[in-house]
Structure formats: structure tokens, C-alpha cells
Design a protein around this nucleic acid. Structure first.
Length: 466
RNA sequence: GCUCCCUUCGUCUAGUGGCCUAGGACGCUGGCCUCUCACGCCGGUAACAGGGGUUCGAGUCCCCUAGGGAGCACCA
């Protein structure tokens, strides 16, 4: 029997980091076993589901390159099927109509809580044989005795007593099915063999297994993975910053890095930190997933991101860098070859956003002096040496790195300066800041014209030292 | 309140009874390299939640306690 896993988000927001990891683990498990990965949109909550959210989830999956073999299936398009199964359950006495009002249920709840009991439905209508009516919901007849054993691939053996479970609503009074029921029907119909999902669903599992049994279906293997915590160890929420997958994209994070980060959050293979797609697929096993919640760590993500910035082909990075530069309104064509820029900057940028910012001066017409420190450096620049340097650079037969470097060195020495004493003011003049790739590389990429213009401008307007 | 889950350095983790005076990674930190910032390299810091058992031997098995978390909807 082929392994079939699924990712089943409800479209009530963007694809967040926790969902992304659940999707990744499901995807990996399916790929590892040469099985199928299915995408299912659980949109039965008509109030909260939106097409924008569906689009955002699809976009997030695409960004992470998590491809699915079937779907997306939409639960709202399967209402006829749910109705059919509902009727079957009703016909076999596994479900019944309940006419208790919301008020009655709420009151019950209050008294149960007051008695320090777990709030659950009293089963008052269980044996009343009510007929279908506009107010009636349908409830599943959960077994009253015995236990349900969940052999969870992550949590291990978990036992639930049936008498802890109540008769849950599987269809609302308007006839629409509820989550716990649609999941059961879909997992059954779609022949899902492994349900990998957040452990907030662990408590739903025994009821789902009971329904599956009532339908004569074999329950799948379940794997409940722990949730992801924020940096502070608290439950992940918007205030933790980038939680939406596409936000990471916007922040200049590479999908390779995010995927690698996510796979190591709750899973490990010895001491290995960096995994290619192929390695992940080959090595991943859901049974090795840690059962404790994990806190995200931005610094480590950034470290991985830089790792991939440094090791992925520079043409590839260049292509991805382009939109970030364009976002600053610069004309990329007016500057040096992007591949060369990437090559020069990849060791000093942790994100594409950072790389774009660090590289803007290559594409702008004028430099602006960024801070007081740079200002001061420029003000105290050795004027005579700079003047001599301009002349020397102007006279260079070929504009190449070695020649530029040699002249800077030669002129610095001639003026009794260390290389740095000349290079730093130069750097400020040419880039506007004290930070850039090696000065020779910076000049080379900037081009002779822009380089000389900027040096001359600095000489003319700066309050330079003699 | 009830049911269920979780607990190794700050963080992610290795560890499946002796290889653990607990390893790796990020971070932090000392140094080297150096035209700046980085990168790289070498070193340092720091943990088995607590208590009882079982065992010749426990981070590893069992129990209890504590602390976190989730679920208990005509949400998913």
C-alpha cells in the first residue's frame, strides 16, 4: 500500500511557520517512501475562510517548493459526500439528531464546570430518536465504554477512555458538517495512511478513530508533532514578528534556509546541521521527530540563510537579489554585473534585504554620507594622497583589481600612510560608508568613471586634510 | 476543574543502561587573519527540572512532585 500523507490547512490566514513545518514533514515522509502528498483545504467554516487565504497558502507552499501530487481539494465542494456518510451513520444507528438548544448546552456547561467536572454533552437526546428538524444537529454516538489506543508515531502509545469522550456534533443545524467529521470522511476517502498534524489535535484523535470504526474504515497512523514556540518560549503569535512564510520571503530569507531550519526544529540526524533536499528526503523519518515543543531562533535561521547565500550558485542568488534592488527604485542595468555583486557581498550579508542595502551604492548616481563616523573620516582624508591616487587611477591602462590595489598601496607608501589610512577615506568617498567589499573590488565593480567622479567630488566638497 | 501531552547548555539538538568527567550547532566570548565590515580558522562559556525507586551501573527504565502546554464549541 503506498504511503499517502496530506496537509490540511484551514484558509483563515497566511501559511505560518508552524503549518509550514507540518507540511514539510508530511511532504518529506511521503517523498521518502515514494508515496503521495495531498493538499486539502479545510474551508467548512464559511465565516472565516477566505479565497485570499487560500491564495496565500498556495503561494507559501510554492515558495517552499512543497509540491503536492493531488489537490488542492476543497471541503466545501464535498458536501454531497459528507451528507451521504451522515445518512449512512444515521441509518446504522451511529448518529442521532439532537434538539438541545444552545442555551441548554451552555447552562449544562456552567453547572458542570461549577461541579469541577469536564464539560461535556449529557447525551440527553441519544435515545430519543428525534426526527430531522430545522433546529436539530447530528451527533455521533460515541461508544460508552472501553478505551481507544492511539499508537502515535511521535508521542508513542496514548490511551483514552471512551467514558471521557462525549457525543460530538458532526452536522450543524443548517446541515453543514463539522471539522471532526469532514476530516474523518476525507482521510478515509483519500486513503490517507499517515496523518501528520499539530499535537493540538491529539485529543480529537480518539473520537476520529471511533468514527472511522463506525464506518468500517481502518484508521491511519497518526503522528502528532509539537507546536512551535516563539523566541520567548511563548505560543507563537503575530507579535513575534515574521510568522507568515511569505514574510520570510520579504525579509530576504531563502526557501532553502527556511526549509533546512524547519526540518532541524524538532528533528535531527546526529550532528548534521545542513541538509540538501535530497538528504532530507533520504534521512527523514517521522518517528525521529522530537515530542517536545521547540522555540524558534532567528539567529540560527540567519546563520543558515547566510550559509545558503554563500554556497548556492551566485547566478541563482543574483536572480533572487534583483527584485530587492529594484524595490529601492534603482536601475540594476546601470550598475555592475549582479553576479559579480553577489560574489563580492555574499560573505557579508545574512539576507537578500541586507545584500541589496549594502549594494545600493553600486547603482545610485550619487553617494550620500551615511553617518558622522564616515563624515569625520572623509574630513580628515589625506588630500595629497587622494589627488595623486586620482591621477594614477585615471592613467591606468586596464581597470583591474590587481592594478588598482597596487596603486593604492604605492601611493599610500609614498605618502607615509598605511594601506588602511588611504583605503578607508576612499571607501567613504566611493560608497558613502565605512563598510564595503575590499576597496579594490569595490572600485573595480563600480567602474572607473563612477569611482573617479566620486573621489573628485569628495576632494572638491569635503573638508579634507592637506 | 477534568483529560491528554511535554521537560538535556540561553536556543535547536545528540544520547535508545556502561563508549557521558554529557557531544554538535546557533548565540555569546577570547584570539588569529585583515584596507573596513564580514568570511574563515583556533580556543572558551554553558545543560540531564526535583525527589524516590529498579540495577553492579541511569540523562537513558518505573513512580511521584513541580513547572510548562493543549483539548474540553452548531471553530478548525
Amino acid at each position: 500500500m503506498p504511503i499517502r500523507t496530506r496537509f490540511a490547512p484551514s484558509p483563515t490566514g497566511y501559511l505560518h511557520i508552524g503549518g509550514a513545518r507540518t507540511a514539510l514533514y508530511s511532504w518529506l515522509y511521503a517523498r521518502h517512501h515514494d508515496g503521495q502528498f495531498i493538499l486539502r483545504i479545510e474551508d467548512t467554516d464559511l465565516e472565516r475562510s477566505t479565497p485570499e487565504s487560500v491564495a496565500a497558502i498556495l503561494q507559501g507552499m510554492a515558495f517552499l517548493n512543497l509540491d503536492y501530487d493531488e489537490g488542492p481539494f476543497y471541503q466545501t465542494q464535498r458536501f454531497d459526500r459528507y451528507r451521504e456518510v451522515l445518512d449512512e451513520l444515521l441509518a446504522h444507528g451511529h448518529a442521532y439528531y439532537c434538539t438541545c438548544t444552545k442555551q441548554e448546552l451552555a447552562d449544562q456547561r456552567v453547572t458542570q464546570l461549577a461541579r469541577k467536572e469536564k464539560p461535556r454533552y449529557s447525551r440527553r437526546c441519544r435515545d430519543c430518536h428525534h426526527e430531522k428538524s430545522p433546529e436539530a444537529v447530528i451527533r455521533f454516538k460515541n461508544p460508552l465504554e472501553g478505551e481507544v489506543v492511539v499508537d502515535d508515531a511521535v508521542k508513542g502509545r496514548v490511551v483514552f477512555q471512551n467514558n471521557e469522550l462525549d457525543d460530538l456534533v458532526i452536522a450543524r443545524s443548517d446541515g453543514t458538517p463539522t471539522y471532526n467529521f469532514t476530516v474523518v470522511v476525507d482521510d478515509m476517502d483519500m486513503r490517507i495512511t499517515h496523518v501528520i498534524r499539530g499535537d493540538d489535535h491529539l485529543n480529537n484523535t480518539p473520537r476520529q478513530i471511533n468514527m472511522l470504526r463506525a464506518l468500517d474504515a481502518t484508521p491511519p497512523t497518526y503522528a502528532h508533532i509539537p507546536m512551535i514556540l516563539g523566541e520567548d518560549g511563548a505560543r507563537l503569535s503575530k507579535r513575534h514578528g515574521a510568522v507568515g512564510v511569505m514574510q520570510y520571503h520579504d525579509d530576504g530569507i531563502l526557501p532553502e534556509a527556511l526549509i533546512n531550519y524547519l526540518v532541524r526544529l524538532g528533528w535531527a540526524h546526529g550532528d548534521q546541521e545542513v541538509f540538501s533536499r535530497e538528504e532530507m528526503v533520504a534521512l527523514f523519518d517521522i518517528k525521529d521527530v522530537h515530542s517536545a515543543p521547540a522555540a524558534i531562533n532567528q539567529k540560527k535561521l540567519l546563520w543558515l540563510n547566510q550559509h545558503y547565500i554563500k554556497t548556492l550558485p551566485e547566478v541563482d542568488i543574483a536572480q533572487r537579489l534583483r527584485p530587492f534592488l529594484e524595490g529601492h527604485g534603482v536601475d540594476v542595468a546601470s550598475g555592475p554585473d549582479l553576479v559579480a555583486v553577489v560574489d563580492a557581498q555574499r560573505e557579508r550579508a545574512k539576507t537578500l534585504v541586507e545584500m541589496a542595502e549594502l549594494s545600493l551604492f553600486f547603482f545610485q548616481d550619487h553617494v550620500t554620507i551615511k553617518d558622522a563616523k564616515s563624515q569625520a573620516l572623509l574630513a580628515s582624508a589625506p588630500k595629497a594622497a587622494l589627488t595623486a591616487l586620482i591621477a594614477a587611477l585615471q592613467a591606468l591602462p586596464v581597470w583591474d583589481r590587481e592594478a588598482i590595489h597596487a596603486h593604492i598601496e604605492e601611493i599610500a607608501t609614498a605618502h607615509g600612510l598605511s594601506f588602511g589610512k588611504l583605503a578607508q577615506p576612499m571607501r567613504v568617498a566611493v560608497t558613502g560608508t565605512t563598510v564595503s567589499p575590499p576597496i579594490d573590488v569595490t572600485c573595480l565593480l563600480l567602474g572607473r568613471e563612477r569611482c573617479l567622479t566620486r573621489l573628485q567630488t569628495a576632494l572638491a566638497f569635503g573638508d579634507l586634510a592637506p
